[in-house]
Design a protein around this nucleic acid. Structure first.
Length: 432
RNA sequence: UCCGCGGUAGCUCAAUGGCAGAGCAUGCGGCUGUUAACCGCAGGGUUGUAGGUUCGAGCCCUACCCGCGGAGCCA
């Protein structure tokens, strides 16, 4: 048996006799020559099989290989201008591992519903493969960013006793003799506790929303990374967010360009993601909307169309800060210069991808936070531990949350978040 | 929850109220450089469900089922 090699490493094996292991991606044949496209998870390589070289028996054996059949292919690696990856193999031996039944996903077009029902197979297609690799690079670079800056990963619980923000509809479940438990919608409150111990932390895990949202931007289960830093104010928070975004996008451009090419992503907007990112206040954002003729009333939250119009004014992500406090969560600190405003910041991605980051400086005064809890009709007992963070050595602190799937969707240039996660969970989809 | 759109072959889609079709996939045959290969032949249908109008319904009408994406809410 020749050396086993991955397709991504073919360039170091030119002229050698090696073996590739994988699945049949596609096949073309003539009377005396066949072309087998083998994919192995790292790439696709075309094997050239000439009847006069391998003999009639092996040549005919290849006909058993249906789409997605698994097999081994041995032969000599050769640089080839015409091959998509730059290399192909002159095959001398084929070993069939498993012949695939008729594969439902053909190289032609399919509808999203058909593909979603076969998500476990859809993941094998080149486009989904590319998205998963970009998703991994985004997550890898996020960890690299925080780990390289003295942050500690702090895992927040999935089961929580009450809503974090009091507004969203949550999934609930029976929890032994303790009544109801809810699936977390955010690890932030726990991140704040971690920041008071470790200074700089990030929570990274799945979150759940039971809202009946049916849009291209919503999942019921999605991943969020939430840094929280003691002694940071809103400006520090925005500095961190823009450096963070720059790092993620730079990493993807550096390490996943072939995948972006598969996705036919126009990288113009990605290359623009450099500090500083533009910062506008909510008031200025409202002025932008009015100047564009949109009927927007001060005090409302920005809708999807509003976000798109604002983001179109800039060539890179834009930070909108100091929102009306009335439309933001109870834990956000008010602007000392204007009690109607919260020290909040949202980052809007370009090209209409909407909000990818939401964050704020947190209310650090005990009495004020207690009053906010009452204003929002939240049960004080459930937040008693959270109030403790203000009882025992409270400090200014701030943080934000970045939605992984929306970020993947934006960087890949997709039109729906359902393709950004291996097995999406949506209101009408729990399978596969 | 509300608004809008859709459901025809395994898949993607056509079909003025008048014989239900094409491409791909599958099977068979052909082809020595194919790039979603190409050429020929073949099999493949309860037009989402139930009613109604009509000489005649995939098409028009009513109800229901399922799905899609937009609003709201949010990442």
């Amino acid at each position: 048996m020749a050396t086993k090699v991955y397709i991504e490493n073919l360039s170091t094996h030119v002229g050698e006799n090696i073996t590739l292991q994988g699945w049949l991606y596609n096949a073309r044949s003539s009377g005396k020559i066949k072309f087998l496209l083998l994919r192995d998870g790292t790439g696709v390589c075309q094997g050239v099989i000439v009847k006069a070289v391998v003999g009639e028996e092996m040549f005919n054996r290849c006909d058993q290989l249906t789409q997605e059949s698994s097999f081994k292919m041995s032969g000599t690696v050769r640089a080839e201008q015409r091959a998509p990856g730059g290399y192909e193999m002159d095959v001398t031996n084929i070993e069939i591992i498993s012949v695939a039944k008729e594969y439902p996903i053909t190289p032609k077009e399919h509808g999203v519903e058909f593909l979603a029902d076969r998500r476990h197979l859809w993941l094998r297609s080149s486009r989904q493969h590319a998205i998963m690799r970009v998703r991994h690079e985004i997550i890898r670079s996020i960890r690299e960013f925080f780990d390289g800056r003295g942050f500690t990963l702090l895992d927040a619980p999935i089961f929580t006793p009450a809503a974090c923000e009091g507004t969203s509809t949550l999934f609930e479940t029976e929890y032994f003799d303790l009544g109801k438990a809810f699936l977390t919608q955010s690890g932030q409150l726990y991140g704040e506790a971690g920041a008071m111990s470790l200074g700089k932390v990030y929570v990274f895990g799945p979150t759940f929303r039971a809202e009946k949202s049916k849009t291209r931007r919503h999942l019921t289960e999605f991943w969020m990374v939430e840094p929280e830093v003691a002694f940071n104010d809103l400006n520090d928070n925005m500095d961190l967010a823009e450096e963070f975004l720059e790092h993620i996008v730079t990493s993807v451009l550096k390490n996943r360009m072939p995948e972006l090419k598969v996705l036919e992503r126009n990288i113009k907007f990605l290359e623009n993601v450099k500090r500083p990112l533009p910062r506008v206040t909510y008031d200025e954002a409202v002025e932008i909307l009015h100047s564009k003729g949109l009927p927007f009333e001060w005090g409302n939250d920005l809708g999807g169309t509003d976000e798109t119009v604002i983001s179109e004014q800039f060539d890179r992500p834009v930070m909108v800060h100091r929102y009306p406090a009335a439309i933001k969560a109870f834990y956000m600190k008010r602007d000392p210069n204007n009690d109607k405003l919260a020290l909040a910041v949202d980052v809007l991605a370009p090209e209409g991808y909407g909000e990818i980051i939401g964050g704020s400086q947190r209310e650090d005064d005990y009495d004020t936070l207690l009053a906010r809890l009452k204003e929002h009709n939240l049960p004080q007992e459930a937040f008693d531990w959270y109030l403790d963070l203000r009882r025992f050595g409270s400090v200014p602190h701030a943080g934000f949350g970045l939605g992984i799937e929306r970020t993947v969707s934006w960087i890949c240039g997709l039109d729906h978040v359902r393709e950004t996660i291996p097995f999406p969970r949506m209101i009408y989809r729990l399978t596969p």
